[in-house]
């Protein structure tokens, strides 16, 4: 049929064939060269609401770090009822942020999750206290204190670990159930209150210092407790089927976090965060940015996004000791170190 048609309309068929092949070649060229056309869409589920703790993620999206990698990334905020690891399994997200304990818990229940980067090198969770009311030089000073903990969350596990380290039994302290507001701490019902040092810590610190109070923070890490916080996770399947996509995502993400941590245009960075966090004043956001930078890159030699294997192993050991998992999960096998230099 084609041969017959070609013999009837030879010139027309030849021109048509050339036109089609040229169009295809042009299309492929534009597809490869033009990022706007070649974009892949990805969904990134955060651990918590979008605030300064997610500054690098925001910068990566709004300053084009993902676009450079040919990716269009949709940021989805997290929350207590949202779980990035569940979203990965259900196909609602391609990447997510989860804390070390969430990852280990999920592995112990057979979830095919892998860790591809660790955003916070230092856990932001600390306990605030009034310096003029109590004095804490060592862990034994916790004796007879009322300590706020969120039962079921990782601050409970961290505090229990600190108590074990201090040699104090749980009868020698009073654990107070933390709720949404800080009233029990302000009223002195609780002596120590858990806060994220880079967000709530800054906010409370400013308020209390403005009222003339003097506060300090109890940092578990300075007492040898390493408990991994926000890390980037994805599914084993995505990693096996599209390793280059994971590589491009992490490259864009690390560039975003590097800009957030080392960038000099702090006005732009704060403006990016303000798109989401309108309730926090600019002054506070600058202070929060400084604190967050110290958590993401605590030392000059530390690479942004580096996976701290010993910290992960200690997190697993703590969870095992606190019966959060019933057997070792060998978390090291799920840490993929190759994506971050």
């Amino acid at each position: 049929m084609v041969i017959r048609a070609r013999s009837v309309f030879p010139l027309l068929i030849d021109r048509l064939a050339r036109l089609i092949s040229m169009s295809v070649a042009l299309g492929v060229t534009f597809f490869i060269l033009d990022p706007a056309i070649a974009q892949e869409n990805l969904t990134y589920r955060l651990k918590w609401l979008i605030n300064m703790s997610t500054v690098g993620d925001i910068v990566a999206v709004h300053q084009g770090c993902f676009l450079e990698q040919g990716l269009t990334v949709t940021l989805k905020s997290g929350g207590p009822e949202r779980d990035a690891i569940r979203d990965l399994e259900l196909g609602h997200a391609d990447f997510g942020v989860a804390s070390g304990d969430q990852v280990i818990q999920a592995i112990s229940k057979g979830s095919p999750v892998v860790v591809v980067a660790q955003l916070f090198q230092k856990n932001p969770l600390q306990w605030v206290y009034f310096k003029n009311k109590i004095r804490i030089d060592g862990l034994t000073d916790l004796k007879n204190k009322t300590i706020g903990v969120t039962f079921g969350k990782n601050d409970e596990i961290i505090m229990r670990t600190l108590l074990v380290k201090s040699g104090l039994s749980e009868r020698q302290v009073r654990l107070y159930s933390v709720r949404l507001d800080y009233t029990p701490f302000y009223k002195g019902v609780a002596d120590l209150w858990p806060v994220y040092i880079n967000t709530q810590g800054v906010e409370i610190g400013h308020k209390l210092m403005a009222s003339g109070a003097s506060i300090a923070f109890l940092d578990p890490e300075s007492h040898g407790v390493l408990f991994v916080a926000n890390s980037v996770v994805t599914s084993k399947r995505l990693l096996e089927e599209h390793p280059e996509r994971v590589h491009r995502f992490i490259k864009g993400l690390i560039k975003g976090w590097t800009t957030a941590v080392e960038g000099t245009d702090t006005d732009r960075i704060v403006d990016d965060v303000r798109r989401y966090d309108r309730d926090t004043s600019r002054d506070l956001l600058f202070a929060q940015l400084d604190q967050t930078r110290a958590l993401v890159k605590p030392g000059k030699t530390v690479s942004i996004g580096r996976i701290n294997v010993p910290a992960w192993e200690q997190t697993e050991a703590i969870m095992l000791a606190n019966q959060q998992i019933d057997r070792p999960v060998n978390v090291g096998t799920r840490l993929r170190l190759e994506f971050v230099e």
Binding site: R86, E89, K109, G110, P112
Partner: peptide, 10 residues
């Protein structure tokens, strides 16, 4: 059916 782990549905 979807082959979900015990973490998602026990």
């Amino acid at each position: 059916v979807v082959n979900l782990s015990d973490y998602v549905i026990p």
